[in-house]
């Protein structure tokens, strides 16, 4: 198992399926009278958030607390970062306080990678979204949700499933992680977006691309709508919100053209009326709320697999005898 989770591409098929299988077992913890496991007792997890977030931060916090870890929440607003402290000094401060894991969200692509590679912290680094680069735990929870709905009895992968991802691909870190993970798990991905919102170099992604949403609906097992990221839009990528929503929004008419088993996903937060209509967002086939529930289980699985075992794998041999006797 890897030490840090920086990119969905770091996970091979075995690791990815292992995380999803572990999450499957941990999902049951939420329905117990005592929603807590003692596994990470005495470990410290730092939520290092340089960018606003509701669900990811709360989800990681809930996951860490359910595993009995101590959680320190850090947000850039109201911290020394606003006085000009660098990422390095912030990281060294956290290291001095003894963080076993740092969950980082940063507005710059590559910040988690820098944090892990520069050895500013000894703890595991988990990427909770960096710039327009990656958001691996979102991809894991999406794959987990797809698997629960579409591939319950399979070999744990998503082989042969057709996933259509629609919207602002250019600015989306969710889509980058999803494409990497879905390829690892064997799914076929179709990306639908206006030409202006497709990134340069998309020809090299293992996906099909299309400018037309209607043509890819009939064969889709999953439709994932991406948020139109108004805060990252500093140029006019499409003529008007109304035109975007007419051509690339998911409404009831389009929902009805999907196969009966297909599910609708959205990483949140949604712009109701823009990329998805309120009817579709609240439809029985929309699994958007379930994605949030699954997010906690998946993040518990990631924290457990990264932190739950021996910090140093070289101790394994001496420990074998002990384990045998348990």
């Amino acid at each position: 198992m890897i030490k840090n989770l920086l990119s969905a591409g770091d996970l091979d098929r075995t690791d990815a399926i292992r995380i999803l299988d572990t999450a499957e077992e941990l999902l049951g913890v939420a329905s117990r009278p005592i929603k807590k496991l003692p596994t990470l007792r005495g470990r410290t997890v730092v939520n290092l958030f340089f960018e606003d977030s509701t669900r990811t931060r709360i989800s990681f916090e809930a996951a860490a607390k359910r595993l009995s870890a101590d959680v320190i929440n850090f947000s850039a607003k109201g911290s020394s970062v606003s006085k000009g402290e660098s990422l390095k000094d912030t990281a060294l401060t956290l290291q001095a306080m003894g963080a076993d894991a740092v969950i980082i969200r940063h507005h710059s692509s590559g910040a988690p990678h820098r944090l892990a590679q520069a050895k500013w912290t000894n703890g595991a680094v988990i990427n909770a979204g960096d710039g327009t680069h990656e958001h691996p735990t979102q991809a894991l929870l999406d794959a987990f949700t797809m698997r629960r709905h579409l591939a319950k009895d399979g070999d744990g992968s998503l082989t042969g499933k057709n996933v259509t991802i629609v919207g602002d691909v250019l600015h989306s870190r969710v889509v980058r992680s999803n494409v990497l993970l879905l390829e690892t798990l064997g799914a076929n991905v179709t990306i639908v977006a206006p030409p202006t919102l497709l990134p340069v170099g998309i020809d090299h992604w293992p996906v099909e691309t299309s400018y037309d949403l209607d043509s890819s609906l009939e064969k889709a097992d999953v439709v994932m709508m991406l948020r139109v990221q108004a805060e990252r839009m500093n140029a006019s990528y499409f003529p008007s919100a109304r035109e975007y929503s007419r051509r690339y929004g998911l409404d009831t008419a389009r929902l009805n053209r999907l196969p009966d088993h297909a599910i609708v996903m959205h990483p949140g937060p949604m712009n109701r009326g823009m990329e998805i209509t309120a009817d579709v967002a609240d439809h029985v086939r929309s699994v958007i709320v379930e994605q949030v529930t699954n997010g906690v289980a998946v993040r518990m699985a990631v924290l457990y697999l990264l932190l739950g075992g021996a910090a140093d794998e070289t101790t394994t041999d001496e420990a074998t005898t002990d384990k045998d006797r348990a």
Binding site: M1, L37, P38, T39, Y304, L305, L306, L307, G308, G309, A310, A311, E313, T315, T316, E318, A319, T320, D322, K323, A326
Partner: peptide, 11 residues
């Protein structure tokens, strides 16, 4: 998740 030897082996 309740074992006392979790820290001695990889997860």
């Amino acid at each position: 998740m309740y074992r006392d030897d979790l820290r001695l082996k990889p997860a």
